[in-house]
Write a protein that binds this DNA or RNA. Structure first.
Lengths: 192, 192, 192, 192
DNA sequence: GATGAATGAGAGTTCATTCAT
DNA sequence: TATGAATGAACTCTCATTCAT
């Protein structure tokens, strides 16, 4: 692991625990066991780290979303896949997930470029739903509004995880959500 | 409007614009056009204001939720009523809504007592759903998980408002969500 | 003496001794025997002090120059008056004179607004000379170029004072300079 | 051009632009396109560069002054020659001239050995004047004080150049100054 | 000799909070 | 009760300088 990666890892730990605004460059440096000035040799400031996190996290999600969108597979399994992808990620890097959620809402972050890309993810969900409508797998609906539901659920999932750390419940919640979506959007009679 | 209320109103303005962590007692005092020390005569610190906001906002929501829960009315209209209640509140006090959403996610706030109560709201939704199940209006489901969906959607709604300020779209999204819920949870055949 | 004036006096001491660039807000605060934050309550930064010094010094000089320009008196006595005015000032506030000279040359100061006004002083000298030409007291010459000579001499005077602290020599130098000017500019035959 | 000369050239650029105190070893290294540590292999610190500049500049001036002092030529042409020598130098290396002027005034530099030699230049001018007096070319005067005038004018010239970059005006100013000197110091009747 | 990386010391600035009046 | 002023503790960031390779 490169020094930059070490610093980033330390930053993730601190930011997840104390929040970005209470994270000081000094705390990160201490956690990474480097002098403060070494921190500044590697990053212009702590903002840069957050931008890095947002950017790489966005890319990871984007790549997965686009990939799954193009699979030959039922719309419903795609949404399910995306939700489960996130569940995996939460388990692998719970701190990172926490940060992305918490800081995304922050007024000071809402103007970040690195954050503005996240809205593209919603568009991919919308595209998946539109495809399903075009193929008459689900009844016509407002796809933007529906993808909002999916995203809201995702965030609620992560928030729930932060608060309860209960993964089983999350799995159940996902299944429950998918069933709701299937029944709510699907065309009567064909069960899809 | 009492002095305390004036100060609180000033604080809401600043916190919504700059985020709680970038809000200083001094900025609030300046916005409220009072000397800094008068601020400290009325509040122990800026944390207290945030707690006040959380507490009163929780109470307002709680009162409404409990009230609507006890109405004699279809489960579905109750959920719809709650969502529309929030839509009204967003319009009336957009800055307050922004703060509650943004700061609720903040790791430093997650330990606040004033915030922990918010989970009770979820329980009321769950209770409304349970009632509907008991009365065989909807098919059995995990009510906690489902109320998570409602709350996730609510937050997504507010976030969307913050980012786009487009209220029409929100109304559409609510209708879309309610339809999904009705179809997804309702028992086949009775359309409820 | 107000607190601000105390701080300014301390700043003058430090800047004269160590140069503006080696002057830190902390050193000024220590000299003024106040906490560092009190310094920042009274000035936005150390630049502001320098600007204040430049501005008030310019004003003092400007007022004197304009005043003497309008006296009914030989051109030659006016120039002499200005030089002696500076000699008095150097004696009264040698540190201030040092600062104005040293920092005026500084590349970082050359862009200051508060400094740019100093060129107006040169214009007043030029005007005094022009008057003398119009009244045929001195032979025609390039007044801007000549006022440059006066100013160069003034700065040299201050520099000499900084280096040698020998006031007697300065007085002699002034007399010598005035004689040179009188002889050099005056019209032959009338001795003025 | 040797590596040391390259570094010095880079340093001159930076110091002239940003002032010595805002010049960092790092900036010089970057401008010279060498690693920072190479800078420290060639100079003990940035002070050494400034000393080098002062020393070589002094030497260049000293050599010229001494040389011209010994020519068989009118005193007046010697002074004129010196002034024109400086005008040439300003044109050739404006940045260097800027630095010598600006940093010479700096209080931190006033204690430099490399700088203290500059006062010797004044003595040469004084010697030229004394010679002229001895040879009864000019009327007796305080030669130290008069050489102060010459030096003040020189600095004013360079300062004017820094501020206006107008070389034509400088040439005029020199001619004007020489005329003043000739008339002011010369013995009446012989016009010298 | 050349070089990338490391690092301690310090400068500039902010802010929560107190206190005398 | 109201208020201007004071203050210490933190935090961000910079830079001269060294050192291992």
């Amino acid at each position: 692991m490169s020094l930059q990666e070490q610093i980033k890892a330390a930053a993730i730990k601190i930011i997840a625990r104390e929040g970005f605004s209470h994270t000081t460059a000094d705390k990160i440096a201490q956690e990474a066991q480097i002098p403060l000035s070494t921190f500044y040799d590697n990053f212009t400031d702590k903002e840069e780290i957050l931008d890095d996190l947002f950017t790489s996290e966005f890319q990871k999600r984007y790549d997965f979303y686009v990939n799954i969108k193009n699979w030959h597979m039922d719309w419903f399994l795609k949404i399910n896949g995306i939700l489960n992808f996130h569940l995996q990620e939460i388990q692998k890097e719970p701190e990172l997930a926490t940060i992305i959620l918490a800081e995304r809402m922050n007024s000071h972050c809402r103007e970040r470029r690195s954050l503005s890309k996240f809205s593209q993810l919603s568009s991919i969900i919308a595209a998946i739903l539109q495809q399903a409508i075009d193929e008459q797998k689900i009844r016509p609906c407002n796809v933007e509004a529906t993808s909002l539901i999916v995203f809201g659920f995702l965030d609620a999932l992560i928030y729930e995880f932060i608060m309860t750390k209960n993964l089983d419940q999350l799995q159940q919640a996902i299944d429950n959500f998918c069933l709701l979506l299937k029944n709510g959007l699907g065309k009567f009679g064909d069960g899809s």
